Simulated assay, not measured.
Amino acid sequence: MSKTMACREAYSAALLELAKEDPNIIVISSDARGSCSLNTFVKTLPDQYVEIGIAEQNEIGVAAGLSVVGKKPYVCAPACFLTARSLEQIKVDVAYSHQNVKILGVSGGVSYGALGSSHHTLHDIAALRCIPDLALIIPSDAVQTAAALRTVAQTKDAVFFRIGREKVPVVYTEEIDIEPFVLGKANTLKEGSDLTLVACGELVYHALEAEKLLKGQGIKARVLDISTLKPFDEEAIIKAARETGAIVTVEEHSVNGGLGATVCQIVCANHPVPVVTLGLPDEYLATGTSLELFGEYGLDAKGIAESASKLLQRKR
């Protein structure tokens, strides 16, 4: 069994270490200390924390204002509220105004599964990708989360992180000799020649498990981890299309406007091959845990492997 760690805990721990070294780092939350694992941060550095309350639009505005006066604000709040209630503020106050604001949307996708569709975040990739000058990062595990935060902390760019809530298997173990995170670059976790599995976020682990199932069927699958949805590594997708001839995308997002749509656009324009996009349907979802919903909608290892096998049968 793989070691498990929560991405939100890795983020807050790395942020605390950065803030100890830089008093200009200010963390801002909208009544989400628990959700964003910030309790230790608040106890350790109370003067570098601002509690806004349940007012996400104000939260982004305050962060932008702090950036204007030279502070380094880090917003932490549930993704479902940030990217619905505060989309205009992210667009105008942060991205359009070129402010050094780092935004953490926690419990993205179906992490709040049991709370139902009001708390699901299935639109955020589609919406945020349309905003210029805003990087969009979706780490696959806790190791990559911490590495990504340390990387972007050295920049003055606006960044949106989307991570889950529960503990997830560690992908970047000591056995994987790859730099966990390089902004704008995909990581090839498995080489293969029959088709490519392209995944982001927590579903990268499930794509790796699907690769094992496919290997048992004699199918060699390449696995790409797309941790940066913007800027996007188009070269990795074009290379995969040319070398493997078929692609399956896997994402914890609506099938509309996310990773799959991005990959299809790139493939269609550069090297057309069959592509199957696995995501969540354009409907209000069933209620359940993340893992239950992954299974229900074919996003677990079994579902991914079945879709990949069908694609190859159709291709042949």
Rank of each mutant, 00 (worst) to 15 (best):
H271V: 00
A79R: 01
H120W: 09
T262P: 04
V198M: 10
T145A: 03
F294W: 15
P78K: 00
S254R: 09
V143C: 04
S254N: 13
E191Q: 15
V198N: 03
I238C: 06
L291Y: 12
D177Q: 14
A63L: 04
K220Y: 07
A64N: 05
V182G: 00
R242D: 07
E191T: 14
I266N: 08
F41I: 02
A207W: 02
Y96R: 08
A64E: 03
K212T: 15
A6G: 12
P272Y: 08
P281D: 06
E21M: 12
D194T: 07
Q313A: 13
V101L: 11
V50Q: 09
S37E: 10
Q144Y: 02
K167Y: 01
D194L: 10
D194Y: 06
I238T: 12
A158L: 05
Q99N: 10
M1S: 13
E21H: 11
L66Q: 10
A158K: 10
G108E: 00
N24I: 00
A135G: 08
V223I: 08
Q265C: 11
E252D: 15
V255Q: 13
L128R: 06
P78N: 03
T173Q: 13
E251K: 06
S307H: 14
A147G: 04
P231H: 01
T196R: 08
K185G: 06
V101F: 02
F181W: 10
C80H: 10
I138T: 13
K215N: 13
A127I: 10
A10Q: 12
K212W: 03
E9P: 02
L82A: 03
G298S: 05
L134G: 09
L15F: 08
R33W: 00
K43A: 14
I131C: 09
C36T: 15
T155V: 04
S12T: 09
K212D: 12
H123C: 02
V273Y: 11
A221I: 09
T289C: 00
Y172F: 15
L149H: 13
K156W: 00
I137S: 05
L189F: 09
E296T: 15
E209D: 13
K20S: 07
L45E: 12
H123V: 06
G258R: 08
Q48E: 10
T287V: 15
S86F: 01
T151K: 09
C264R: 07
L285Q: 07
V50H: 10
E51V: 01
D47F: 02
V42E: 10
I131E: 08
A79E: 10
E191K: 12
R316K: 13
E17N: 12
E21Y: 06
P274T: 02
K102S: 05
I178F: 02
K190W: 06
K220H: 14
F232L: 11
V248C: 12
H123S: 06
T289Y: 03
H120T: 01
V94T: 01
P73D: 04
L183T: 03
Y49W: 14
E56H: 07
Y297R: 07
V276P: 00
Y284W: 11
A305E: 11
L259G: 10
M5W: 11
P46Q: 06
P132Y: 05
A55E: 07
L278Q: 06
A126R: 11
